[in-house]
């Protein structure tokens, strides 16, 4: 999995169509869907290859020369990945100099259970 990179508005638009279809697609299909935007085949191909680079789509060769694109993540998974990247940033340390938090320690669930038990007796 590559490092999380945010999607541009247009890339998001393309992805939303793919998520809605919920199956593998070819660029010719998307060209029909986005016909009102006046995009050329090359434009769609560029967006799709960028989405492949960003880890949202996988590509396979279909019959003839056409590429077939498959979504690698669902919308929910994408959102979770996005949120995780914020958490990673937050736990890097330097970021804490810009915020005032309620807590900044990472404590495991087991340790928390132990603490809760200890605290309830206080």
């Amino acid at each position: 999995m590559p490092k999380f990179q945010s999607l541009t508005d247009t890339e998001m638009e393309v992805m939303q169509i793919i998520w809605k279809l919920n199956r593998s697609v070819q660029s010719s299909e998307l060209l029909t869907i986005f016909s009102e935007k006046g995009w050329k085949g090359q434009t769609i191909a560029t967006f799709l290859s960028r989405l492949v680079d960003k880890g949202l789509l996988s590509v396979t060769k279909g019959k003839g020369r056409a590429n077939i694109y498959n979504p690698r993540l669902s919308f929910k998974e994408y959102k979770k990945w996005e949120a995780q990247s914020l958490l990673d940033t937050m736990y890097q340390g330097s970021v804490k100099t810009f915020l005032a938090t309620l807590y900044d320690e990472k404590v495991t669930t087991e340790e928390l259970d132990e603490l809760k038990k200890w605290f309830s007796d206080k």
Binding site: E105, K106, T108, L112
Partner: peptide, 21 residues
């Protein structure tokens, strides 16, 4: 903290309090 905790449970249970704890 518990709700925010995304870490999976550690297989090695620690009996002593760790630094964060």
């Amino acid at each position: 903290m518990q709700r925010a905790n995304q870490q999976p449970n550690s297989p090695f249970s620690v009996s002593l309090f760790t630094k964060g704890q």
